[in-house]
Design a protein around this nucleic acid. Structure first.
Length: 284
DNA sequence: AACGCCGCCTGATCGC
DNA sequence: TGCGATCAGGCGGCGT
């Protein structure tokens, strides 16, 4: 599932392709996937607009649009669980679950594909206001992160999935960061002292930036053809033998030996979500 | 009011 | 082989 690194790699890929381009036709194929939720209103807000940039905030993509009186300046994208975004020639075959399609000139179109329809393309920017700090912008744990952990008796793994505590961490990198930090996922967030909080913040930054660096070293393939591994095709060729999946330390590795100590990695369920940890490297 | 849990979705996988 | 059941999960919303 796309988390901060996958969105970051996608943004870096799309930013130069979209900037300066003007939107032509707009085709909303699933009204569920857009806000406002009528095809006509959404198309009216987007048609003929020019992209001036593309940014990321947490797991959100922010498409900057040239100012037009009375119209929103930012299109907000979220990939949900299974969303993909790419450009393709207009004569190519559309994927089965193409939710939104719009022309970007020169015989090309932008495709937002999303088999489970959890993602969105929206002109409502209000969800951004609830986001916590950007982990890669702050070398030291921000006060909002410390406060978000201190206030809760929930397991720290569950707290990390709350986007108001830290923006962009999802189920995969939460397990990964806790492993790197040597923290047992079940530990109540409020029980972590300043040292461990600082270590956890560093670990979050490490696993996220490592994933981005890996993604950016691989040639991008955004043909939109084929599926490949739904988890980590963001960084490269879905057919490539080495995917980032192979670099994950604990996620989806239940029963396998820990790469650090050799003990068996465990799968548990926290907040009705799969959680992976090494019982030896992660205590208390 | 913090927190647990449901519903939204389809595709992959599993068991019989 | 075929088919129904189960699972996957980001996030908003709802109930306690």
């Amino acid at each position: 599932m796309p988390e901060l690194p996958e969105v970051e790699v996608l943004v870096r890929h799309l930013q130069p392709l979209l900037t300066g381009r003007r939107v032509g036709f707009v085709e909303v194929r699933r009204t569920k996937s857009v806000r406002p939720q009528t095809a006509a209103e959404f198309a009216r807000a987007l048609r003929n607009r020019r992209f001036t940039g593309l940014r990321r905030r947490g797991k959100f993509l922010l498409f900057d649009l040239a100012k037009v009186r009375g119209k929103p300046e930012t299109l907000v994208g979220h990939l949900g669980m299974t969303g993909r975004m790419f450009l393709q020639p207009v004569r190519d075959v559309l994927p089965k679950h193409a939710a939104v399609v719009f022309g970007v000139g020169q015989g090309e179109r932008f495709v937002f594909e999303d088999p489970r329809y959890f993602g969105r393309l929206s002109f409502d920017a209000s969800p951004l206001a609830r986001l916590g700090a950007e982990p890669l912008d702050h070398p030291d744990p921000p006060e909002s992160f410390v406060a978000g952990l201190r206030a809760s008796r929930q397991p720290v793994k569950v707290r990390l999935l709350d986007q108001s505590v830290v923006a962009g961490v999802g189920n995969i990198y939460a397990s990964e960061a806790l492993f790197v930090a040597g923290i047992w996922p079940v530990v109540p967030a409020a029980r972590l002292g300043p040292q461990r909080i600082a270590g956890l913040w560093r670990a979050i930054r490490e696993v996220l930036s490592e994933a981005i660096a890996w993604g950016s070293t691989v040639p991008l393939n955004w043909s939109g053809a084929g599926g490949g591994d739904a988890l980590f095709y963001y960084g490269g060729d879905p057919e490539a033998p080495d995917t980032y999946e192979e670099r994950l330390r604990v996620y989806d590795r239940a029963g396998e030996p820990c790469g650090r100590c050799g003990d068996t990695i465990q799968r548990t369920v926290l907040g009705s979500r799969s959680t992976f940890h090494c019982p030896r490297c992660q205590r208390q």
